[in-house]
Design a binder for these strands. Structure first.
Length: 487
RNA sequence: GGCGCUAUCGUCUAACGGUUAGGACGAAGCCCUCUCAAGGCUUAAAUACGGGUUCGAUUCCCGUUAGCGCUACCA
């Protein structure tokens, strides 16, 4: 039974790439009846914040992958530091690590010969244990470095489940730090210690960790543990090819942007799955269960995937399309319930009952719930926003025709049976009587009641609006027409 | 700079040596139609470049180019 983990560090909101990594871990575990472990990698006390942790939980919860943020077990690295330090010291005790007393300021490129990578400080790596112990006992600060076995071993290898056989020469791996001079573990140490201790079987993470994995394999081996299986995921990048970053790309990299933009959680999950993974059968719109059933690591590909967005539109068109597909499939009650908060947030007065009436009229017309504000606004307002009188004039018609149509409509709506069929019959008959095409009759009415030419089907709209509102708005339209033509 | 990874329509992707290089989004056109939307049909659009291997390369190998990642006492 596989055990996978998602290990975010709480230094910002939940990033779209992190969300995808979590989803892939989750799918892999659910597909294989495994366990999802959520581990907060919060060893960097300087940058961690509670607000960030909360927003990561919010993001995971919105994804709607189950209780407890979709995870089965929960850990916090900061509570396990004693373990990390103990295991680091075990490695030191085995002679597989050494103390490096070089002051922090001197660790960088000035020691590295130009052209080659920095590997280690010879004086530190080769120091006698007597001197090392003496300086440590004297209280001199040091970082504990892994002693990469360049003499006894040519390369470190592992088989990545996505990228295949990986190998890197030990001569190209530097003596990386295990413990910092403040005594706290580094990311590499803490991560591997926890992965080993929690018996993680599969590490599924971003490809940015691919080269770190050679170090991790070394740590697992030094710990006497069998390294877990690794599967690296291609990265999500911006349209310009650069990696997604908050500073450069703004809120598009946060999952909350999609949440607030009126996406269904599942649409977003579905969309993210399609980035860097394919079921290979041309299926795109899939339910959560279908995704679980069909997800495999073999379906993950190796090249980075671009998230398509622009300054004008932060949402990838495919995500929007997927959401529209899911919206159309929603039961009307659920559609109404989910759309309501967005109508309210847009400043409209409405309630669930009214939303339920409107639901069938907007279902095929909104792509995200945020569209409710531009698609259904006229249902909510008392007085329509001003519109151009010219809008009232039908195709191949004139102001006189518009006026005649509206006057006829006013009479008809006063007496007609106020339901779809009744209005349909009465208004068509009205058009016939006026000698105009149905469309020429309907358009002025539509503009009069909706305030624009493009709107849901007329009869249903009239019914939802109610006789009184319709008559009032038609009256207003006649006034507008009159004042414009006489002015 | 060193090391690693990647390269199919604008974008997401399919094609485990042999296809007219397929699908989807987006775009364009047509149909349907009371407008819009939805739906149906159609069109444009790709194997980065150069060498090999092979009867045959999108596919395998090498090189070039480009992009990304790692190269911290950050994760």
């Amino acid at each position: 039974m596989p055990r996978v983990r998602f290990a975010p560090s709480p230094t910002g909101y939940l990033h779209i790439g992190s969300a995808r990594t979590f989803i892939f871990n989750w799918l892999y575990a659910r597909h294989n009846q495994g366990t999802v472990i959520l581990r907060i990698d919060d060893t960097d006390v300087e940058r961690n914040t509670q607000a960030s942790l909360d927003s990561i939980f919010d993001g995971l919860d919105w994804l709607d992958l189950g209780p407890n943020h979709g995870a089965d077990e929960f850990y916090r690295q900061s509570e396990r530091i004693d373990l990390h330090v103990k295991l680091a010291n075990d490695i030191f005790a085995k002679g597989l690590a050494y103390r490096d007393f070089t002051p922090a300021e001197h660790t960088d490129a000035d020691v590295a010969p130009s052209g080659a990578a920095w590997l280690f400080h010879p004086a530190m790596r080769n120091m006698t244990s007597e001197e090392s112990d003496r300086r440590a006992a004297a209280g001199e600060p040091f970082v504990l470095r892994f002693r990469v076995p360049r003499e006894t071993r040519e390369a470190v290898t592992f088989a990545d489940l996505v990228y295949g056989e990986q190998s890197k020469g030990t001569a190209d791996i530097e003596d990386f730090a295990l413990l910092r001079s403040n005594g706290l573990p580094t990311y590499h140490m803490a991560s591997c210690a926890d992965d080993a201790d929690l018996r993680i079987s599969h590490i599924i993470r971003g490809q940015d960790h691919l080269t770190n994995t050679f170090k991790h394999v070394l740590i697992f081996e030094a710990l006497g543990a069998t390294p877990p299986a690794f599967a690296h995921l291609p990265l999500l990048i911006a349209p310009d090819g650069s990696k997604l970053s908050k500073r450069k790309h703004g809120p598009v990299v946060s999952v909350t942007t999609y949440r607030d933009g009126g996406f269904l959680p599942h649409s977003y999950v579905n969309f993210l799955c399609l980035l860097g993974w394919s079921p290979k059968n041309d299926r795109e719109v899939m339910s959560r269960q279908e995704l679980v059933d069909v997800f495999t690591l073999e379906g993950v590909n190796r090249s980075n995937a671009t998230v398509n967005f622009t300054d004008a539109d932060p949402f990838d068109p495919k995500a929007v399309w997927l959401n529209a597909e899911n919206v159309r499939a929603l039961p009307l009650d659920e559609l109404a319930a989910r759309a309501l908060p967005f109508a309210l947030a847009a400043g409209f007065h409405t309630d669930e009952a009214q939303m339920r009436q409107i639901a069938p009229l907007i279902q095929e017309r909104i792509r995200t719930f945020k569209d409710i504000a531009t698609v259904a606004d006229f249902f909510f307002v008392e007085e329509l926003a001003p519109y151009d009188a010219a809008e009232l004039i039908p195709q191949k018609g004139d102001a006189a025709m518009a006026a005649a149509a509206l006057e006829a409509a006013r009479d008809i709506l006063q007496t007609a049976e106020f339901n779809h069929d009744g209005l349909d019959a009465a208004l068509r008959a009205g058009a016939l009587k006026l000698g105009v095409k149905p469309g020429q009759m309907f358009q002025p009415i539509r503009v009069a009641v909706c305030g624009r030419k493009n709107a849901p089907p007329l009869f249903e709209t009239l019914v939802v609006l109610g006789r009184e509102t319709c008559l009032h708005r038609i009256g207003r339209a006649l006034e507008i027409l009159h004042t414009t033509t006489t002015a």
